[in-house]
């Protein structure tokens, strides 16, 4: 019987473009996934791949998405929020999401989960309870927006009366979704957030703490699912020797190459596993 193969693309901002390298390696071997799962930055890649976008279009989407105007106003809004000059509540963010929404709208328009050629699931987090919310129907623009609502930066996003934030808050590499959907083989491409080298501002220190929290959530959830799953999880953990910032789209060829390299190491075993 044919094994059900899922690809899970974890959170990691621009680093998630490494999934294009993974797909390149799989395509060369004529290996096609039966399901895609995405979280946060990974939701953009899972969704566009599930819609059948070609790699060049996804590359272009990445360049457009990760321009630094997407976080315009962050510093002045942070100052205003900290001084109490502007009010902040659960629906606030330090950045206006207008540009993010425009870009998501350009990518997905009115497409829904029903338009994907490969079944797709996107993970977000319930703002109030912290529980994982798996989105499997509705507009892709809403799912990607909710899954990418970086805490404090972008405002949470409401879907069906549920206030949602970044999927990475509960599960940065949601292999559980693929396990629950009955996958036999799960390729999980995940990314640890880089550590700050210079702690010279409030933002730098909070970003560093955020990386510590996120990386610990990533490791503990991954450890648990590894021990619990009955079949096989193949981790793809690309190494990035170069320092890559959130808007370094000029590093895209390197990011994709590292993803491809990490995937190639797992291809012989994956092939054996799928043949058996």
């Amino acid at each position: 019987m044919k094994k059900h193969l899922s690809i899970v693309i974890g959170s990691g901002s621009i680093l998630c473009a490494a999934s294009l390298g993974l797909m390149k390696a799989l395509k060369r071997e004529k290996i096609q996934p039966d399901m895609l799962v995405g979280c946060s930055g990974g939701s953009l890649y899972a969704a566009t791949l599930a819609l059948g976008f070609d790699p060049a279009a996804i590359h272009e989407m990445t360049v457009d998405m990760y321009k630094n105007d997407i976080v315009e106003g962050y510093t002045s809004n942070l100052r205003a929020a900290m001084s109490g000059e502007t009010r902040f509540n659960e629906t606030s963010g330090l950045v206006d999401d207008k540009i993010l929404m425009e870009r998501l709208q350009t990518i997905f328009a009115e497409k829904t989960f029903a338009d994907t050629t490969i079944p797709l699931h996107i993970v977000a987090t319930d703002f109030y309870t912290g529980e994982e919310v798996v989105l499997s129907n509705g507009r892709l623009v809403d799912a990607a927006r909710a899954s990418s609502a970086i805490p404090m930066i972008f405002p949470p996003w409401k879907i069906n009366d549920q206030l949602l934030v970044d999927g990475a808050v509960c599960n940065p590499l949601p292999v559980d979704v693929a396990i629950k959907e009955g996958s036999d083989v799960i390729i999980a491409i995940g990314f640890e957030l880089p550590m700050r080298r210079r702690m010279n501002s409030y933002t730098a220190v909070t970003t560093h703490f955020n990386s510590l929290y996120m990386n610990n959530i990533l490791k503990s959830t991954f450890a648990f699912y590894n021990a619990a799953h009955h079949a096989e999880i193949i981790p793809i953990l690309p190494s990035f020797e170069k320092q890559i910032g959130g808007f370094d789209h000029h590093q895209l060829p390197y990011i994709i190459e590292q993803g491809e390299k990490a995937a190639e190491e797992q291809i012989p075993y994956l092939k054996k596993l799928l043949e058996n």
């Binding site: 995940g190 990533l218 490791k219 503990s220 991954f222 450890a223 590894n226 021990a227 981790p235 953990l237 190494s239 190491e265």
Partner: peptide, 12 residues
């Protein structure tokens, strides 16, 4: 190194 990364990631 590659195996070490997996061991660390899985909490070993």
């Amino acid at each position: 190194p590659g195996i070490d990364k997996v061991l660390k990631m899985a909490g070993f």
